[in-house]
Amino acid sequence: NKFNKEMRNAYWEILLLPNLNEQQKRAFIRSLYDDPSQSANLLAEAKKLNDAQA
Rank of each mutant, 00 (worst) to 15 (best):
K25V: 06
Q24T: 07
N50F: 01
L32T: 01
D35W: 04
N41M: 08
Q53A: 07
N9Q: 14
F3P: 15
F28K: 02
S37F: 12
R26Q: 10
A27D: 15
D51F: 12
S31D: 12
K5A: 07
W12Y: 15
A40D: 08
A44G: 11
K48T: 12
I14G: 00
A52V: 10
N19Y: 10
S37D: 13
A40S: 10
L17Q: 12
E6A: 03
L17A: 05
K5N: 05
R30E: 11
A46G: 02
K47Y: 09
Q38T: 05
L42P: 02
Q23R: 06
L49F: 07
L15Y: 03
N9E: 13
M7D: 03
R30S: 14
N1T: 04
F28Y: 10
K47P: 00
I29L: 05
R8I: 08
E22P: 09
P36F: 07
R26N: 09
E45L: 07
Q38L: 14
P18E: 07
S31A: 10
D51A: 10
M7V: 07
Q24D: 11
Y33L: 04
R30Q: 08
R8E: 15
S31G: 13
A52S: 14
F28R: 01
R26H: 06
I29H: 06
E45F: 07
S31Q: 10
K47N: 09
E13H: 12
D51G: 15
R30K: 11
S31F: 08
D35T: 08
N1R: 01
R30F: 10
I29S: 03
Q38I: 11
D51R: 10
Q38D: 05
A54F: 13
N50K: 01
S39T: 09
L42H: 14
Y33P: 02
A44R: 12
A27M: 11
Y11G: 02
Q24I: 12
L49N: 06
A40E: 08
W12K: 15
A52I: 15
L15E: 02
A52R: 12
E22N: 07
L20I: 06
L16K: 15
N4V: 03
I14K: 00
Q24R: 06
A40P: 08
L42A: 08
N19E: 10
N4A: 02
L16P: 02
Q38M: 08
A54H: 13
S37Q: 11
N9I: 14
S39H: 15
A27Y: 09
N9K: 15
P18Q: 11
N9Y: 14
A10M: 03
D51W: 13
F28H: 03
L16E: 07
E13Q: 11
N1F: 01
D35Q: 14
K2E: 15
Q38Y: 09
